[in-house]
Design a protein around this nucleic acid. Structure first.
Length: 279
DNA sequence: AAACAGGCCTAAA
DNA sequence: TTTAGGCCTGTT
């Protein structure tokens, strides 16, 4: 992969195994949308960014000079997915191979721990459209202005969320999740749940700690670990993956064959189960 | 209009 | 330890 820097954007060539569309529409991330101009835009790490993909092997990143690497990491473009895909497909075969072909452009984004935890708390018993709206309102309510765009907001800090109190979250219309959001914000901001320190923990211990938050069960903890802590071995089972496992794998899957890539495989299965009928 | 949506909590066996 | 019902809100 090569990087060339121009005045207001960087150009990556020699990109493989990436579809911006699949990556931003596979349910892992709630803050990016198709941009009116072109491509996908959103806020991450407090900064506005826009990505374009004029051809499969070419990606444009509209960002300040010097930020390219940040976004390359965000997109996991520093990881060789072709090898991972081969491993997953050959390790399981059958429907898994189909799923890898179908969603082969998905990359697991490297999102921030707090944002991932909070977002997946909100996601429970909820649909993507509404999840996005709730998160958008949360950011507008107490997030700081994002760098690089007017009217865009960073994901708020735990302290900022906590300061609102549970009642202060009412405008989000998050329903029963408001209490969960507040508990998470309180635990993180008062240090009982030290997300920074948890980066050093093994994945099972990490998930166990995350589950001390009210409203965080196995699925949400696994999602936070996978998307917020880069734990690609975490294997969240939601209704779609459940459906896929029931339909194609006799109800369960021996993920030992997937090594540390179970979470990536999960994402292919999820995307395939959820979207194949649209194709 | 009733069910359901990318779960989890609580109460009851 | 496992299982059923309920939960906010919005959409179909």
């Amino acid at each position: 992969m090569e990087i060339k820097r121009y005045k207001d954007h960087a150009v990556l060539t020699g990109v493989s195994d990436l579809s911006l569309g699949q990556t931003f529409d596979c349910g892992q991330c709630f803050r990016f949308d198709p941009d009116p101009a072109e491509g996908f835009s959103g806020v991450a790490q407090g900064r506005f960014v826009r990505f374009e993909q004029p051809s499969p092997d070419k990606v444009l990143i509209y960002c300040p000079e010097g930020d390219e690497e940040r976004w390359i990491e965000f997109l996991s473009l520093d990881v060789d997915y072709s090898e991972i895909k081969r491993l997953i497909a050959s390790g399981i075969g059958g429907v898994m191979s189909e799923a890898v072909l179908f969603g082969g452009g998905i990359r697991i984004l490297r999102q921030e721990p707090w944002e991932a935890l909070c977002s997946f708390i909100i996601s429970q018993n909820n649909n993507i459209g509404r999840i996005k709206k709730i998160i958008s309102r949360l950011c507008a309510l107490c997030g700081e202005a994002a760098a690089g765009a007017e009217g865009r907001y960073a994901f708020p800090s735990p302290a900022a969320v906590c300061a609102l109190g549970e009642e202060g979250l009412a405008p989000l219309k998050a329903g029963f999740r408001a209490g969960y959001i507040h508990d998470a914000a309180r635990r993180v901001s008062d240090g009982r749940l030290d997300l920074e320190a948890l980066k050093k923990e093994e994945t099972p211990a990490l998930m166990e700690r995350l589950r001390t938050v009210k409203g965080v069960g196995p699925k949400v903890a696994a999602c936070a670990a996978l998307f917020g802590f880069g734990r690609t071995e975490a294997f969240p089972v939601d209704v779609w993956v459940r459906r896929s496992l029931d339909r194609h794998f006799g109800g369960s899957l021996d993920i030992s064959a997937l090594g540390s890539y179970a979470g990536i495989a999960q994402q292919y299965l999820f995307y395939y189960e959820r979207n194949q009928k649209l194709a």
